[in-house]
């Protein structure tokens, strides 16, 4: 569908099972590089489940099963011999609720760097700063880097978490309703941030907020009961959806 753009990530006939309970049905989708793809759909339709396939988060729990393929830079990341830890450092994720680690602000960010083998103190310091700058948090926290991250406001914590994910230089970022717990000002800061980030990374964002999807995304995917119903450029999707279901959902007739 997204023309002849460079495809960073795509799934082919992806299904997902929680034990015997199938939550994603045969989804094929292409994610173009340096774009923002919004996933919308009613609660329980499988957006989170689908998103978490891309960094194999489901591997953490027993009984979960993938079927089909996901290609990331033309490598099937669902295959057995993939280094999941390495994969996750390339495909970052931000959750609904901010999750700062129980450490200081700067340690929250330097932690991932140290894991990736960066030991040089000045390099760490520089990269902490640049990560905080790129998540538009630097000005607010530069005088309190050594203080506990739990002391930040919810919006600041969420931007810290984004900075933390960015510090390890992922190529893809997965956002699962990143602003649903935040106030409008923090929300718009994070939306601006996403627009800025797409120069560097490819973004998939799950959102319940139709305006948000329309504002920031290039493509929108509508899911319903575990299936991908429609996937198109965002402006087409919101002005001229092809499927009746998508139209009903977008115009608020159900959801």
């Amino acid at each position: 569908m997204p023309g002849n753009k460079n495809i960073k990530l795509y799934s082919k006939n992806l299904s997902f099972f929680y034990g015997n309970n199938q939550a994603v049905f045969d989804v094929s989708i292409e994610i173009p590089q340096h774009s923002i793809v919004a996933m919308i759909g009613p609660s329980g339709c499988g957006k989170t489940t689908f998103l978490r396939c891309f960094n194999r988060m489901h591997d953490l729990y027993p009984g979960n099963r993938y079927q089909g393929e996901i290609f990331f830079d033309n490598q099937n990341i669902l295959s057995k011999n993939i280094d999941v830890t390495l994969l996750r450092s390339k495909i970052g994720m931000v959750f609904q609720k901010p999750t700062p680690f129980p450490m200081s602000i700067s340690d929250n960010i330097s932690y991932g760097l140290k894991l990736n083998g960066i030991k040089n103190k000045t390099e760490i310091k520089d990269r902490v700063e640049s990560a905080l700058r790129s998540s538009a948090l630097w000005k607010e926290v530069k005088d309190r880097l050594k203080l506990p991250a739990t002391g930040l406001s919810g919006g600041q914590q969420q931007r810290l978490v984004i900075a933390r994910a960015l510090a390890v230089e992922p190529q893809v970022m997965l956002f699962d309703e990143p602003t649903s717990a935040l106030d409008p000002i923090s929300t718009s800061k994070i939306e601006e941030l996403a627009a800025e980030l797409k120069k560097k990374v490819t973004i998939i964002i799950v959102t319940h907020n139709m305006q948000q999807a329309a504002r920031i995304s290039d493509y929108t995917a509508f899911m319903y009961m575990g299936k991908l119903i429609e996937y198109d450029e965002t402006n087409v999707m919101f002005t001229n959806p092809q499927e009746k279901l998508s139209e009903d959902y977008i115009t608020g007739r159900f959801g």
Binding site: L86, R88, M93, Q96, K97, T99, F101, P102, M103, L115
Partner: peptide, 27 residues
Amino acid sequence: TPQVLKESAYSIGTTEWEVIKDVILPY
């Protein structure tokens, strides 16, 4: 320890042992 905290540690590419040592125990 909130599950989502552990997951966010995994999501930046930590191993199980690192999550225990650096997130669960400090938390």
